[in-house]
Amino acid sequence: MCIDGDVLELDFDMDLEEIKALTLFVKDRLAYIEEIVIFPSKEGLPTSSSLWALLWCLKQEKPSLKIDAIDKIPLDLGVFGTLYWNSHE
């Protein structure tokens, strides 16, 4: 995880402890973050759905926040198939 100006860069394979730290980190800085970019891990697969819940929550909190993983759906997750959000439900 690193922050480059107003872009927060995250890894796909963050574990629960890292997500916990990330939650604290973004809580204080959401106003300054404009975009979140997620980089695939070695296997290219996400590790915890908690990260996706956090991203979803951030997007709800700040709709102008650019998060390709949320905005550009469907999202190809390789062997994990294509991810869709049922946000309309």
């Binding site: 996706w52 819940a53 198939g81 869709y84």
Partner: peptide, 8 residues
Amino acid sequence: ILASFWSP
């Protein structure tokens, strides 16, 4: 896995 549909 062909696809997944997530309902938060």
